[in-house]
Amino acid sequence: MEDTLKIEDIIKPENLVYKKTSVLTDVPMHYCYGCSHGVVHKLVAEVIEEMGIQEDTVGVSPVGCAVLAYNYLDIDWMQAAHGRAPAVATGYKRVNPEKYVFTYQGDGDLAAIGTAETMHAVNRGENIVIIFINNAIYGMTGGQMAPTTMLGQQTATSPYGRDIDLNGYPLKITELLAQLPGAAYVTRQSVHTPGNVRKCKKAIRKAFENSAKNIGTSFVEVVSTCNSGWKQTPVEANEWMEENMFPFYPLGDLKDGEREKPDAYLVQKLKK
């Protein structure tokens, strides 16, 4: 009997179990084939749809490959200067506290040129969501070394591999941010397997839910691939990421709760 079921019988509206969310537009993404951005865009869009907050969410796109993220998610957007997305989000959120505001930033944007804006937004505990795509390279400009580039990793500006004496160390910015009292939720995810995609979506959902609770900043790093920049196929890039990046950038939650209570930071006898 099972073999008599034809494909046409399966492909019917009542049997639909997964389709592209309506929060994603029909504009084909400009990203390279296999790029992690597409998956993370989809997850953010699905969370927005499932929470029913499309009219109340405003995104901040960065400078980098994701600068055009505003073409793909059907929400209002602001396009920030390089690294300044957390400042733009802060400026917006402070005068519109009832809105959901998220930034979407790459490693160069967030962890190099925008380090100050990132650290201080999280330290103030801004009630925003920061999505951080760490693919250890500058994709948009053609594969240069990023703050998170691995030691020995070859890029257009580290053609003989990243060297400590010349370039310093790869920056674990997420570990730094997890130390800040303003952070509510700091997690590191990936989207290279179906299981990781599902986990990452849960993390993004929690981050958005936190933002409505006013409990501090939620920060989701997604360790990602840049197969074009790495000069690999998408499948090879996933393997390279697992072998080389995960040991240094281990997946999992670094902080899950809410911003610190002020008690530990209060000086008892402040002299007037």
């Binding site: 079921l5 019988d9 399966i10 492909i11 019917k12 049997n15 639909l16 179990v17 997964y18 389709k19 592209k20 969310t21 994603l24 084909p28 993404m29 990203y31 084939y33 296999g34 790029c35 992690s36 951005h37 597409g38 998956v39 989809k42 989207v191 290279h192 397997t193 179906p194 995609v197 599902r198």
Partner: peptide, 14 residues
Amino acid sequence: AMVCPDSCITVYRV
């Protein structure tokens, strides 16, 4: 569909 970066897969299940 989970891992598809271009969201071009629709899935049906009986």
